[in-house]
Write a protein that binds this DNA or RNA. Structure first.
Lengths: 149, 149
DNA sequence: TATAATTAGTACTATAGAGGTCCTATTTTA
DNA sequence: TAAAATAGGACCTCTATAGTACTAATTATA
C-alpha cells in the first residue's frame, strides 16, 4: 500500500533519535536501548546509513555514529533513498527499458512525472521537522504554505 | 522503493485504456490484446476494480467492463486504493496499535501527516490527466500551478 | 429454450524480497 | 596488548506478490 519498508521506517526512528543530540556520538547498543529496535537490526541500519553518507562512523572504543549533516539539511527523501535507492512508483519510473509493455504503454511518462512529484514532496520534509515540530506542527507547516493545491 | 505493486501499475494501464473509449464495453480478451498484459492477470485486475466500484461489469454474451465514472472524476489515488487499500507509508499510518515501538516512537504522528500529504498529491491526478495530456503536459500542469512549493 | 459468451469467485503454487541473526575481520582507544 | 566498537558478509526464514487455473453464475441471441 505504497509503503516504505520496515527497515526504512526504523531508519527514520534512528535518525530522529540521533538528531536529538547531534553533537554526541552514539553506539549501536545505546541506540537499541533508546529506540527498542533489536540490536542486529539497528546495526544493519546504521551501516547502510553510513555507507550512504548520512551518518559518520567512528570505530574502536568510545566509537559510534553521528549525523553527517545538520538535521535541517537531511530530508525524508534522503533517508528513503539511502535505504531503498531513489524512489519511483513503478518499474519504469527510472529505467525505460525494463517493462515489456513499454512499446504500447501510453502512460509511462506520466508515472515518471508523478514519482518526481512525490519525491519533491518528501524532499520538503527535514529530519528537523520530524524531531522538533512533532505531529501537529508539521501539519500546520504544510497547510500554512498551501502545499497541496 | 516506495513502489506501488505491479498489479496496481497494470491497473492504471487498463484503466487508461478503458478511458480512451468511455462509451464502449470492453471484455477481458479485448483488453489483453490491446495492453499486452496476460489474460488471467487482466481478469484479476478487472474483478478487483469492479468490486471497488471503479468499473461496471456486464455478464454474458457481449458483456464486458466499462468505467463507472467519467475519467476526470477518477484519480490515481482511487486506483491505488482500490487495488491496495488506503495507502500509508508506514504501518502506523493507519493503525496506532500495531507497532511495538509506539510508546517510545517520537515520530509516529509525522508519518500519518506525510502519508496524507502524498495521498492528497495523488488525488490531484485524474485518469483523464493520464490519458489525454500525456507526459509533458502533466508536467506543465503541475509546474504551472506551483504545486510543489 | 438451448447454447455460447462472458464475468464471479475461489483456491493454489512458486518466487522474490524483506526482515532478522550471527560470525569474523578490522580499527581505535586506553 | 586488550577491550570496545564498527565493517562486511553469509545465511535463514517467512510473508506477500504475481500469476494461474478451475468451476459457478449470468446473459444475449439464434
Amino acid at each position: 500500500m505504497l509503503k516504505i519498508s520496515k527497515l526504512t521506517d526504523y531508519s527514520t526512528v534512528v535518525m530522529a533519535y540521533l538528531a536529538q543530540f547531534p553533537e554526541k556520538m552514539h553506539n549501536a547498543k545505546d541506540i537499541t536501548a533508546q529506540t527498542h529496535i533489536a540490536l542486529p537490526t539497528v546495526s544493519k541500519i546504521l551501516k547502510a546509513l553510513t555507507k550512504s553518507g548520512l551518518l559518520l562512523s567512528h570505530r574502536g572504543a568510545h566509537g559510534g555514529y553521528s549525523l553527517a549533516n545538520a538535521a535541517i539539511k537531511i530530508t525524508i527523501a534522503d533517508i528513503i533513498t539511502a535505504m531503498e535507492g531513489k524512489p519511483g512508483l513503478t518499474e519504469c519510473s527510472h529505467n525505460n527499458t525494463l517493462c515489456a509493455l513499454q512499446p504500447t504503454c501510453a502512460i509511462a511518462g506520466n508515472w515518471q512525472t508523478i514519482s518526481s512529484i512525490v519525491y519533491k514532496t518528501l524532499e520538503k520534509i527535514s529530519l528537523q521537522d520530524m524531531v522538533l515540530l512533532k505531529g501537529s506542527h508539521l501539519q500546520h507547516h504544510f497547510n500554512g504554505e498551501e502545499h497541496i493545491k
